[in-house]
Simulated scan of single mutants.
Amino acid sequence: MDMQVKDLYPSRTGGEARWLPRVDPVVWGSADQNKDDYTLNQQQLDSFDENGFIILEGAAEDLVAPIQEELTAMKERLKGREEMVIEPDSEELRSLFQPHFFSDFIHKVARDPRMINIARQLLNDDVYMHQSRVNVKPGMKGRSFPWHSDFETWHVEDGMPQMRAVTGWIMLTENDPFNGPLFLIPGSHKHYLSCAGTTPEDNYKMSLRKQEAGTPNVESLDWLIKEGGGLAGAFGKPGTIVFHESNIMHGSPDNLASYPRTNLFFVYNSVKNACKAPFSGQKPRPSFLASRDTTPLEPLKEPLK
């Protein structure tokens, strides 16, 4: 590991789970910076700072159909590739990584001002794409994602130094209480859980299908839920945009409905927060999970039509 980079958030070091202080801001920018029709107002920024996420109902309804068309074609082209991850107990598609790399249109979606302008405002910096993915939960067969902090994984396994990243995502189908929606613990982003255990070699080969390393114990979750005042669900119609903070504790249950739940995720990272060597001391994960291309994304001047 690069000895010049201090590990502010050690985790999976072989000891027991423990709480560490968060030393980074939640909101790096302000309502006055990069202010336009597509950024958040002060009330929305305050809500994000307090809760760790924000839901913008129906903000991208016009993008749903063309994105779905792109994904249908992409699934056929990418069959058999490592970017296509299947469910742990079936051959159903679970995740498709790096869709912005394989589709010019989806790359433009990532740079649509409805997405990137908010990311740049929250992080107060130019941003690059650390990771993009589509998570698919087919009806009755889509399996859960356990409680976890994305930042804990990106820090330990990718070498992301600080909490200066944010995930912006678009609901491509309705997300309701029954089809395996994302649940979050409001306020949990203000606390960093250093997880017990260590990281297996090539952990991603298992964790993308069923994550175990870097997940919290029951006692830690119970404290977070009580401290934060409960749970919240990210529900909405197709085209709803959600932004959530990199360290917020979140997860999703099995899809119990007969219809799917599909979402497109973009992980924006500050160019000043580029990944170094993984803090686990292991080799970096593949670039489709953690891009080393830190070229700033150029925002589109107008929303896609």
Rank of each mutant, 00 (worst) to 15 (best):
Y9F: 11
G15T: 09
R18L: 08
R22A: 06
V26N: 00
W28S: 00
D32M: 01
Y38T: 05
L40F: 05
G52P: 01
E57C: 00
A59I: 00
L63A: 03
K75N: 14
R81C: 04
R81V: 00
I86N: 01
S90H: 04
S103P: 10
F105V: 06
H107F: 15
A110V: 02
M115Y: 13
M115N: 09
N117A: 09
I118R: 15
R120F: 13
H130N: 14
S132W: 12
R133I: 03
N135F: 07
R143M: 07
P146Y: 04
S149M: 09
S149F: 00
E152M: 12
W154V: 05
E157C: 11
Q162M: 10
M163K: 03
T167Q: 04
T167R: 00
G180P: 09
G187L: 08
H189E: 02
H191S: 09
L193S: 05
C195S: 10
G197Q: 04
T198M: 04
S207Y: 10
Q211C: 11
Q211I: 09
E212H: 12
E212Q: 11
P216C: 05
E219A: 15
S220P: 05
G228W: 07
I241G: 06
F243K: 03
Y259C: 10
Y259W: 15
F265P: 02
N269H: 13
S270G: 06
K283E: 13
F288S: 00
